[in-house]
Simulated assay, not measured.
Amino acid sequence: MTFAPLLALAVEEAEHHGNVALETVGYGLVALTVFGVLALVTASYRNVANRHAHKAEAYARAHANDVQQAGHGH
């Protein structure tokens, strides 16, 4: 056999008839799950500062004299 028939046989074997979309659904489900978990983690940090507002106010009152008032953050 020459190279051309061998190549034709290899192409026939490599070709398959299936639904490629169904073969890749798993990747989409994994990505959707990962992004869903990341969204839940992000949402869990909502309003954290307000949960401890009383601590922040107490700290600001206790250390009000420690802050130097200088222009432009210097």
Rank of each mutant, 00 (worst) to 15 (best):
A10D: 05
V41F: 12
L29M: 14
G28T: 07
H63D: 00
R46M: 05
G26E: 09
E23V: 06
Q69N: 08
V37T: 08
V67D: 04
V25T: 09
F3D: 13
A8F: 07
A62Q: 15
G71P: 03
A62T: 08
Q69R: 10
A8L: 14
Y59N: 08
H74M: 09
V48Y: 09
Y27D: 07
A21P: 00
H54D: 15
V48Q: 13
L9Q: 14
L32P: 00
M1W: 04
E15M: 08
G26K: 08
V30S: 06
L29C: 07
L22K: 09
H52N: 13
V41Q: 06
A4R: 11
S44T: 05
M1A: 12
R46D: 03
A64K: 13
R51N: 09
A4E: 14
K55S: 07
A58T: 03
A10F: 03
A14Y: 01
F3H: 08
T42D: 03
H54N: 09
H63F: 09
V11E: 05
G18I: 02
V25L: 15
N50C: 01
A21Q: 09
V11M: 06
G36C: 02
R46S: 04
L38Q: 11
Q69E: 10
Y59T: 06
L9Y: 03
L40H: 00
P5D: 14
G28M: 02
A39K: 10
V20Y: 08
A56W: 12
V41T: 03
T2V: 01
H63R: 06
V37D: 01
T2M: 04
N50R: 11
V41N: 01
F3N: 07
L38P: 00
G73R: 04
V67S: 04
N19K: 07
A58W: 00
N65K: 14
H16N: 08
D66C: 04
V20A: 14
A8E: 14
A70G: 04
G73L: 06
N19M: 02
Q69K: 12
Y45P: 00
E13F: 07
A53Y: 06
A56D: 10
T33A: 15
Q68A: 13
E23N: 11
N50M: 05
T42S: 10
H74L: 11
A56H: 13
T24A: 12
R61V: 03
A60I: 11
A43E: 01
A53S: 11
A49D: 14
H74Q: 12
M1E: 08
V37G: 02
A60F: 04
D66Y: 02
H74S: 11
A43G: 03
V67G: 01
L38F: 15
A53R: 15
T33G: 13
A8T: 12
L40K: 03
L9V: 03
L29N: 11
N47M: 07
V41P: 00
R46Y: 03
H17I: 09
V41A: 14
G36R: 01
Y45G: 08
H74D: 10
L9M: 12
H54I: 04
V20L: 15
L38M: 13
G36I: 01
Y45I: 04
L29W: 04
A10P: 00
H72M: 06
Y45C: 08
L40W: 04
V37M: 09
